[in-house]
Simulated assay, not measured.
Amino acid sequence: MIYDAFLPGVLLLGFGFKMLRPKLKGDFGEQSVSLAIHGMGLPIQNDVTLPGKNGLTQIDHLVLTRSAIVVLETKNYSGSLYDNGRGQGGGWIQRFPSGKQNRLHNPLDQNYGHIKSVGKIVPGVPVTGFVVLAGNARFPNGLPEGVLTIRDLKRKLKEMNQGEGPNPASIQEAWSKLQQADCRDGASHREQMLQVTGGGLKYWIQTSAPWITGVGLAMVLGGIYF
């Protein structure tokens, strides 16, 4: 027998999952990169929030190597990607076999800002960065400079971490400073989310999606009784 809440629950569940899907896909990509770096035995900070040029900025990963602190922006894309350059008027084009295409902001520009934010906190310490493709997207015309697959990233980090003994003191101290600067309180998270979404409906969708999905699932599970 089907309870009255079952159908509304299905609708809420579908709506909530649709809103959550981009975040879940992004989280999966970030987790893939994090696990790969953990497997190399390198120190890593995930989902870091630091003071930036216009308030707070969120960084997917920071990695400590012997030669530099590495700033990573992970993208879990599919389809074929084409690079139209950086800056205003640039970006990436994402195309699918169906003919659908999307215009994407160039994540190299985004990560450049992250690198600058990290550099201001730890001046004088080498800081570099890359965009990591964690999905099955491919660049038919070749990867742009500064963009790596997970396999390429592991190779690059291995090169950057060559040497024996402890890390240079300056880099190790900078790493500790970045750990202390990471803003993980609720107010900082809310401020960063408001900056990213611009507030309004987009903010409501991102913050309400888990709650809506949970309510929908509870209604579906409770809607059938024996």
Rank of each mutant, 00 (worst) to 15 (best):
F130C: 05
G119C: 04
G135Y: 01
T128F: 05
R103M: 01
D60M: 06
G87P: 13
P140Y: 10
K120H: 14
S67H: 10
Y82T: 15
V125D: 02
V147P: 07
D60T: 08
I59R: 02
L153H: 03
T65L: 03
R138T: 14
Q110C: 04
N111K: 06
R155Y: 02
V63L: 10
Q101I: 00
P144H: 02
P123N: 03
T128M: 06
G87I: 08
V147D: 03
G113E: 06
G91S: 09
V71R: 00
F96V: 11
G99Y: 06
G142F: 03
G79C: 13
L81I: 03
K154D: 03
D83Y: 13
R155G: 09
V125C: 04
Q88Y: 12
G89S: 08
L108V: 11
S117T: 00
G119K: 08
K120T: 10
K120S: 11
L64R: 14
V125M: 10
P107I: 01
Q110A: 04
R138F: 02
P144K: 05
N84R: 15
Q110Y: 01
H105D: 08
P107A: 03
G91T: 09
V147N: 12
L133A: 09
V127H: 00
G87F: 14
G85F: 02
G146T: 05
N102M: 07
D152I: 00
H105S: 13
Y82G: 01
N76Q: 14
K75L: 13
G79W: 10
I115M: 14
K116A: 13
G90S: 11
T65V: 06
L153F: 04
N111H: 05
V127F: 03
W92Q: 12
V132F: 04
N141Q: 15
G113R: 07
V118S: 08
L143V: 04
N141D: 15
G113I: 05
Q110P: 01
P140D: 13
R155S: 13
G79M: 05
Y77L: 15
F96K: 13
S78V: 04
Q110K: 04
G119T: 07
G124S: 06
L153T: 08
